[in-house]
Structure formats: structure tokens, C-alpha cells
Design a protein around this nucleic acid. Sequence first.
RNA 1: GCCGACGUAGCUCAAUCGGCAGAGCAUCUGUCUUGUAAACAGAAGGUCAGGGGUUCGAUUCCCCUCGUCGGCUCCA
Length: 653
Amino acid sequence: MSAELRITLAGAERVVAAGTTAGDALEADGRTVIAARVNGEARDLAHEVAEGDVVEPIEVSSDEGRAIVRHSTAHVMAQAVQELFPGAKLGIGPPVDNGFYYDFDVEQAFHPDDLKRVEKRMRDIVKQGQLFSRRAVSDDEAREELAGEPYKLELIGLKGGSLEEESVEVGAGQLTIYDNLDPKTGELCWKDLCRGPHVPSTRSIPAFKLMRSGGAYWRGSEKNPQLQRIYGTAWESRDKQDAYLKMLEEAEKRDHRKLGAELDLFSFPDELGSGLAVFHPKGGVIRRVMEDYSRRRHEEAGYEFVNTPHITKEKLYQVSGHLDWYRDGMFPPMELEGARYYLKPMNCPMHNLIFRARGRSYRELPLRLFEFGTVYRYEKSGVVHGLTRVRGLTQDDAHIYCTREEMRDELTSLLRFVLDLLRDYGLEDFYLELSTKDPEKFVGSDDAWEEATQTLREVAEAESLELVLDPGGAAFYGPKISVQVRDAIGRTWQMSTIQLDFNLPELFELEYQAADGTRKQPVMIHRALFGSIERFFGVMVEHYAGAFPPWLAPVQVAGIPIADAHIPYLQDVAKKLRERGIRVEVDTADDRMQKKIRNAQKSKVPFMLLAGDDDIANGAVSFRYRNGEQKNGVSVEEAIAEIVNAVERRVQV
RNA sequence: GCCGACGUAGCUCAAUCGGCAGAGCAUCUGUCUUGUAAACAGAAGGUCAGGGGUUCGAUUCCCCUCGUCGGCUCCA
């Protein structure tokens, strides 16, 4: 056998001794370079290279490197858990976005205090510097070694099954076990079935923290037993971790549930029931302005406004198929006069009735019906969440009926319309997601799907936005494009959806008379821009951290007198502002001026106008802006112009 | 729906190992009023989420319901 091997390292050929590890070849320290990519596959640094291998470093600060650190940290956590809770059986423990988790079958769910104990034990293990050592095993050997781990045994049994079942525990080929070894004695401390790779030593884990625990179904199915999952985060440095924790803190500060209460925007009275919001005056005015602007834009874009009731006899949802498909998501019916009535979960069937109310001509198409339609959905008790997941919501719902020939132009202008409008609300950073046909479950002809999907794709590509594919993700009745928005701190939210529907026109027997006198079926496009107003409202609160741009701010101007004597002067200024449509409040309370500023600041009013003797003498006011800056002695006319201008241009200040 | 944590004044949070429930802010009243984030004083505010049980006595212990939070599943 040859004592030398030829490998490619960082693009250059190198000759190394046989038995050289990837770590040796890369001169990896196990700190910055924590694993290797050998012929494209991620490997441990201890992996021995072979003739002709292409070896590249995996740095801890790359996505792949972080995932390896996180995966290794999950192992450390599992070891700590099994030491502290000897009966704990292992589920799976993969890296995920920003961290990792591990599932355990334990007698009793973890208490927050338990996490502290586990974390402490983990720190000891990390400090000890246990080595991750890979060992290939046969299926039978693995079964024998893991006889006490029923879930691992199940995974071994699944090996070679469908690709989807491939996991971090079990790859497609050879099974491997990772031993964690005491660095001094070489003694086995712990082991786990795992395909790897791992960092060389627990000391290569620079920063980690346990976050929370919760229940999780084994292999993601509610038919399976529930395990206890612990989530943690891990990073390539303490600084990166701190930055991440700070981002979470920032997100918490922006939480719309918290800000909604603080700013007196909305609440969820217990008396109403879970997931049913009431909007207070300050939230109500934001909502009204959001809706008004949307109405105006829709009107300009050729939409017609309709209104439909909140309840209906069951027949409608039998025809539409909703009772077949989504009965569990609907509130149960109420019986009256021998009929069953349902709260409506969707507006489209009612809009179809409007389309069908008389014969339709091709000349009327595209027919664009728009409604702020309130719907009720029985969301399961565990999922309601602030304004983003509610049981009563108002959709800015439009249904567009057009001919097959018109579909392309309609979708193009529709997507542009949607993006433009979202930009007007201050959302700038988008990507699109295209959900295509599930070959197992669909209605409509193949060529209709093909044409619609292709059209959506072209329309999306024409916007030169990032397009993410979601193969098989469409509903059975038609393909969908959705607009994903990144907010001010980089979180993504699914906002608008544009969905083609080949099913409802059929079920409702919708038709129009074409130019040649024949009757044809229109194409139907479902489209919501905000999705639900409640949810959009919540996203806006978080995006702006409650500091709405002036056009949306519930109170746009706070008038603050230096002393009571200046109140009439400010009230006069306020009157002039009101005449220009500005929402202004003069603070006449029995507080000192400093306190009034503090109150206005806390309520995130965009403009404070102060007036004292000096201002009055000059026919002026003094600005204080939200960021604390001030501009003194501005003439009343100029001040009004500045405020009106900011509102009209819908800018943030 | 499932697993877990939790529910005390409008808000944020104390206290009671089963024996008359407390603070700050907000509210109300009064006193005081001049330049960019909290004047002073007093008052009022609670069926300790709701219901049932154990007990001489329950905010405290047990059960149920409702609600909130964190996960899982679901999301037309």
C-alpha cells in the first residue's frame, strides 16, 4: 500500500501521508474550523482522507458550521438530561434555525428549574472537553447497543425508507454511533446513534443557552405519544449569541400584545371568549385609516364593493364543499326554524352568489368584487395567539372573475397592485412563494394548472423578487402565490396571497356569455392583501414597534402648554390642524409640562407641539420629535405645513 | 385538540408555610403652575379568574371550567 495520497486542498493539489485526517490536512484547530467537507460531504475533522479527495474547511461561523455546533450541543444536552434523569429515553435532536432541540420521553415534563440544572451540567461537560468519536456499526450491533432506547430502535427500523424519513440520526447508508470520551482517560461517558458530523470536542462549543421546553409529538404526528422537547441556542461566539438574545429581547419589546395594551389599542376581554378582539378608540382609528386608504386604492384599481352577511344556512357551504373539507374549522351550527345556520368561515361562496345573481357578459369581466368581510373560524384552543391567530377576523377579501385569456394580465397587475400597496404601508422587503400542484390531490384539468402555474411564475419573475418554490404546497383547487414580508427586525411574515381556483366556479356553475354567444366558465382568483386586518394590524405594530408613521398614528400631534395660560393659544393651533384633518390633542391635564412630554413620548406620538410665552410672542410653536430632537420657534403656518406634509406623504418620522 | 407553566387593583408586581390582602404607576379630589421623559398631598379602587370540594376557617390544599403564556399538531 502506498504511504502517500494525493488530495485537493483549497483548490490546490497536495500530497499527504496515508492516515492523514481531514483536520490534519486543513491544520484545523477545532475552533474556527470545526469540520471538513470531503468531496462535498460534511465530515468530522478526524475523518481520514483518501486518494483523490477534495477537502475543504467548514468554519464555525458558516451556516453549516453553526448547524454542526448546534447539533453537537444537542448531544451534550441529551447527555446531561440522561445523567440527571436516568429514565429519560432519547427521541431526536437536530439543529434548527438559530439553535437545536432534543426530544425525550420522561416520566414528568421538565420544569423551568430543571432546565437550569441541565444547563449547568452541560457547562461542566463542555468544560471537560469530551471528544466526539465516530464508530461505524452494523444494524444488529446498533440494535443491541441501543436496546434501551426504543425510539432509536424505531429509527433504525425506518432506515432505507423514504427520503423524507432521513434524519440526523440515521442516514441512508451505514449506521454510526458517536461516543463521547473523557479526554484524559478515554473512558466512554455517553453515546448516541448519529450520522454526524460533530465538532471534535465539547470545548469546540463556544456559546449556548437553553431556551424553553414543551411537548412535541414523536415523529410529528398527533397519533404518536408526546415527548418532551427542550430547545436551546448555540453560536460560534459569545458575541453572536448575545446579539441573537438581544434580537429576541427587541422582538419581545415589540410584541403587539404588550404594545396593544400599553398603547390602549385593543384587548381580548375574557367575556367574549378566546381569540375575539375588541379595538379601542386608538386602535380603531388606526384600523379605520388603514381600511380607508385600502378602499380608495381598490376603488382606483377598478374593484367594486360588496357586502355579505355573517351567517348563512348550511346549504351554501355544502355547495362550496367547505362543510366537507373544513367542517372542523367552523363554529358548530345553530338550529332555527328547522334550518341549520353557520357562521361564515370564508367570503368566497357569498361573492359567487353575487356573480350568479344575474347573467354575466364577457364585457363585465374582469369583475372584481371586494369586501372587508368578517369571518369566524374555530381555531383550536392551543393555537390562538394575539391578533395573529384569532377566531373572528376581517379579511380584505377580493374575488376576481375573468376569462382564461385575461388571467395573465390580471395576475400581473394584481401582484403589482398588492406590492405597491404593501409598500405604502411601509413594508419594503419581500419575497414570493409559489405553491404548486399536489399531484395526489387536485381538481381541474392539467393544462389549466399548467397555464396558471406558469403564469404565476412569470408574473412573479417579472417583479425581480426572490422566488421560493413550494412544490405540492397548493390547495387542491388551484395554485397560489404568496407575498412574504420581512419586517424591521428581519422576521418574515406571510402577508398577501393570490390564489387561483378551478373548483368553485365549477361547483357554483358560474358562467358568462362570451362574444361568440357561447356560455363559458370564468376563472376565479382569490386575493387577500392584508390577509386578515387583525393580523396585519399586529404585524404593523411589531414592524413599527408601536411608533406608527404620522399618517397611521392614532394621535398625530400632542399640544403641550408650558403653563396653563398657554392652553388657549395651543387650542387655536389645534383647531387649525383639525381643519387640515390632523388628529391632535391638547394636554390640558393638571400635570407639569415635563410630565406631559413624558406621557406623549410614552404614547409614541410623532409630533409634540409646545408653546410658551416666547412662542406666543412670535406666533410660533416648538417641535419635539419622537427621537427627542427639538426645533423651536417655528411659525404656526410652517409647523402645520410640516405636519400635513408628513401625513400626506405617508412617511415615517 | 395534546403537553407544560400560570391567573392577586386598570397596568407592573409583593405578601399570606390555611387565620382582617399590600406597593408603585394609572384614576379621582385638592394644593402648586414657565421651556423638552415623573411637582406635592389625600381619596378611591380587590367575591385573590369562575364554580365545586376538604376544613372551625380557603386567595393559599384538591377537582372542574374559563382565560393567558411557551411548545406540538393544525392553519381553507
